[in-house]
Design a binder for these strands. Sequence first.
DNA 1: GTATCTGCAAAACATTTGCAATTCT
DNA 2: AGAATTGCAAATGTTTTGCAGATAC
Lengths: 136, 136
Amino acid sequence: MEQVKNALISKNIKPTYQRLEIYKYLRNNRNHPTVDMIYESLLKKIPTISKTTIYNALETFVEKGLVMPIVITGTEMRYDANASKHPHFLCEKCGKIIDIDLECRYIGKMNVRGNIINEMHCYLRGICQNCNNSGH
Amino acid sequence: MEQVKNALISKNIKPTYQRLEIYKYLRNNRNHPTVDMIYESLLKKIPTISKTTIYNALETFVEKGLVMPIVITGTEMRYDANASKHPHFLCEKCGKIIDIDLECRYIGKMNVRGNIINEMHCYLRGICQNCNNSGH
DNA sequence: GTATCTGCAAAACATTTGCAATTCT
DNA sequence: AGAATTGCAAATGTTTTGCAGATAC
């Protein structure tokens, strides 16, 4: 509880009620939610919350490095309370996105033909453990 | 010319006039275009073409494995006539997306805690050679 | 002639913007 | 009071859908 509040304060983000609830959702639901998923869930607790507020809060969180935006499906953004670099895994069957414990590397240098590489993003596709087991 | 047509036929895609032009555009412009970029360019040659047709054609191309959809920005899809796996580089300054000659690997196995990995996608971010040179 | 493909118009989503009301200090 | 935040309503941008007419085999 206090931990969540301090996480915001330590990143210089004013801990308003809405921001705390949004961040708490992200910490408790490690499902890389869309804005809509967050919205639908918070509506139960905060019936007056608006999507604009969620967009605003997430923008702030990303700017301050508290939250990592992730792009996999192409049509919608997803967000991860784990802001450190790590790869994601998309299940091609159920569409779920999970964290995966792998190290991704590129073989080469920081400078490729004059292009300076700052960071690498990677995600993996396949069949998740759950879908794989229910398949037989 | 015939090559373009045969590329479609060999993937079991009927080579209509519009599809040929869309695929030709992708072959000639290796800039990972958006639907809108393809549309605006083809309008000059085919004033009656519609975005729906471009969406339809690209969907077919992707299904048949002729074209690779790429997801980097999160707001729009981009397409690449090179359907073989290779990483992309996004310039954080000019927004250009280019192919980059690097090998990406993950350190680990095909099966991570029951999740079966089929493929890996990766992209890199940084400053492109062009922006880097014009900077000083 | 029957399947498929094209393209218009409208709908469906995701996101952004303008702004007035609210909240916090 | 003053600055930041919230949330409504409208606008924007991308993609999807329904469907009638055109095209191809």
